[in-house]
Design a protein around this nucleic acid. Structure first.
Lengths: 170, 170
DNA sequence: CCGATGATGACAGCATGCTGACATCATCAA
DNA sequence: TTGATGATGTCAGCATGCTGTCATCATCGG
């Protein structure tokens, strides 16, 4: 909770006269966890903004490169609800994005041999080059942001985040 | 990236015949980082959903208890742009939330001795009891989700997340 | 004191997510 | 075969975030 208190404190200079924070009664673990939750909110917003800024030249948005990334990882296409399950979003939200992306020529809907109604989403050539362009800005960005971070910390954090996901996703 | 590939793989059972994922060319660190980014997206969505479900009996939403939590940590109130800076959101987004919360009687706008136009946001008695009710569900939830997680992992993850925030927030 | 600069309030438009609801198609067990 | 159950497509409504814009107020340097 220290970071939040610090941020509130920092704001005092602008919006003045805030007193001491009332964090009495919080155990250290609880405070750590709640701070982590708030930090995840914050990081999520920053990552979306960063991703949008990084890919706006490619005509992409955060919602779009999430879909492109998932589809690119499958060689034979995914259904719209399938993409939604991977991303943990509603199928309606994904459907709306893919419909626009299909109009823009980034993806195509192909017949699904295993399912008559639920078509498969595939990348068009344009979509593939968008993915490659995405990789070309995403990879240096990933390297830049991890070069001074020990791999063990990345592994620990990822494991923790995954554990939380698994716990909340049932 | 393993988790994403695994998720795509798991979806194969539903939306069939996806081949091997093409993760060639990714260094381990890059893959870890990109997987962490995607996992943060996922966790963010789950945390918002969980928070909404947890507080719907209190008439709160995720956007509202974020505001309540921040205001409760200051004893003399914060301005709307100040809350926005703490949460890392736009002042317009916060303004809209606080306007509705003021109508609902959770907060009040009080004159700011340091600034004639920018009023201070304070919790009403109703807002304070909402915060206490929030704490009563939030604290057990935090304990439940951390009891089997070593405090060192929480600290490492929080430190990493904060470092990323600091790097992206400039 | 005054003008430049920045912060704020207020409104508009848009993107993205959610849920609900309903019809239709797929699948499986009786 | 048939009926129940689940998955999907589709449309609607709503919540929440962002940016842009403009007028107004605060603050500070000249």
């Amino acid at each position: 909770m220290d970071a939040l208190v610090a941020r509130v404190g920092a704001v005092r200079a602008v919006a003045p006269s805030a007193g001491a924070a009332s964090t009495v009664g919080h155990s250290p673990k609880r405070m750590l966890f709640l701070d982590l939750v708030l930090s995840v909110f914050r990081l999520n917003g920053l990552l979306v903004a960063e991703g949008d800024a990084m890919t706006e030249d490619l005509g992409l948005t955060s919602a779009r490169w999430k879909v492109i990334g998932v589809v690119a990882l499958s060689t034979a296409g995914l259904t719209v609800p399938g993409i939604a399950r991977v991303l943990g979003q509603s199928r309606q939200a994904v459907q709306r994005i893919t419909d626009v992306m299909a109009q823009d020529g980034l993806i195509t809907y192909e017949p699904n041999p295993k399912h008559k109604r639920s078509v498969l989403v595939l990348l068009t050539d344009e979509g593939k080059s968008a993915y490659h362009a995405l990789r070309e800005v995403q990879d240096p960005w990933a390297i830049r942001n991890t070069e001074d971070i020990p791999i063990e910390e990345l592994e620990t954090s990822l494991r923790l985040v995954r554990r939380l996901i698994q716990r909340l996703d049932k």
